[in-house]
């Protein structure tokens, strides 16, 4: 019980509704390292978990037609300073079901920690999923975060993802998402990261618009300061008629940080359209001067700009 309480206490410092996570009416999975602390089912949702050697496997199935009013909470973290957390998850949202998942990833005192997440997500025809993953790291950079996901969005499905790591040190973050989108589906993937010190950020997001009239957006917002580095690779394939894809990448560098953006457009159907925009550089001078003309110091103005961009 005490590890669960500790985890909820840490969650309470970053998430206003931490108490709701432990409510018996709310489906949840709470994990510290590879130890399952709590698992709660809810009507229409099946959650199973087991430890296979050093990997914690989790399976979540939302039954056909179920529309969950409350989100499923995944509270995943490491309360200790070191160790390996390896999670392999499989999430299936059946036909016409709708679900929101909130993943709270807590690594408050990481000194030598590794978080590996391998996720397979499958949305059946007409299914909808909102996935929000927030990372809350401490001030030390001793963490390696390796989230990898393969997402299949079925015909008419809707997938929305928002990954953010804007509190504490990012450490070494290598994010790798691949989304395959079927006909008339909608996909929106947003990534927001703030790196400091010697943090190393690398994201690779690949969207395959495979079915007719599939639409998708890959949006990246990254800020780096100190000596941090970031590399954002966004790839969109337009492989069918009437598909529309767009990639929107903005990276702000401060101090001695470095950033790179690589939008890749790959189109194999004459009626497909994929566009991109990327901006990498320091803060916009006009925005900065506008805020300074309202009395903000240069430092406060930069804070406002970066906070806004990462919001």
């Amino acid at each position: 019980m005490s590890a669960l309480n500790d985890m909820l206490e840490v969650l309470g410092t970053v998430y206003d509704d931490a108490a709701i996570v432990a409510s018996p009416q709310i489906a949840h999975l709470i994990v510290d390292g590879n130890n399952l602390l709590s698992l709660q089912q809810a009507p229409g949702v099946s959650i199973a978990s087991r430890l296979v050697e050093t990997v914690l496997e989790a399976e979540i199935v939302v039954a056909q037609g179920v529309r969950l009013e409350q989100p499923i909470h995944l509270c995943i973290g490491m309360l200790g300073p070191r160790g390996l957390q390896h999670i392999r998850s499989r999430i299936k949202v059946e036909e016409d079901a709708q679900v929101s998942l909130l993943a709270h990833c807590l690594f408050p005192v990481a000194e030598s920690s590794r978080h590996v997440m391998e996720a397979e997500v499958e949305l059946a025809a007409g299914a909808q999923m909102h996935y929000r993953e927030g990372h809350y790291h401490g001030p030390t950079a001793g963490i390696e975060v390796l989230p990898k996901a393969v997402v299949k969005v079925g015909p008419g499905g809707r997938f929305f993802s928002d990954f953010f790591l804007t509190t504490g040190r990012a450490g070494r973050l290598h994010l790798d998402y691949r989304i395959e989108a079927a006909a008339e589906s909608v996909t929106e993937v947003t990534t927001r990261i703030f790196g400091h010190g010697s943090d190393e950020i690398r994201t690779r997001e690949e969207l395959v618009l495979a079915g007719r009239a599939a639409r998708g957006l890959l949006k990246s917002r990254v800020a780096v300061d100190g000596e941090a580095s970031s590399e954002v690779i966004s790839i969109t394939h337009g492989n069918a008629a009437e598909v529309r894809g767009h990639m929107d990448c903005m990276e702000i560098i401060l101090e001695r940080a470095r950033a790179q953006a690589q939008p890749i457009v790959s189109v194999s159907h004459p009626l497909a359209k994929v566009t991109h925009e990327a901006a990498v550089g320091t803060v916009d001078q006009k925005q900065l001067e506008t805020l300074m003309a309202r009395g903000l110091s240069p430092e406060a103005a930069v804070d406002v700009l970066i906070t806004g961009m990462l919001r």
């Binding site: 916009d284 506008t290 300074m292 003309a293 309202r294 009395g295 240069p298 806004g308 961009m309 919001r311």
Partner: peptide, 24 residues
């Protein structure tokens, strides 16, 4: 004086094409 110090004296400006701010 830099801009923000002029602003603190009471000077401000509205630009012809005002900047736009994401998330603000």
């Amino acid at each position: 004086l830099p801009i923000h110090e002029r602003a603190r004296l009471g000077i401000t400006m509205a630009w012809q094409e005002p900047a736009r701010f994401e998330g603000l």
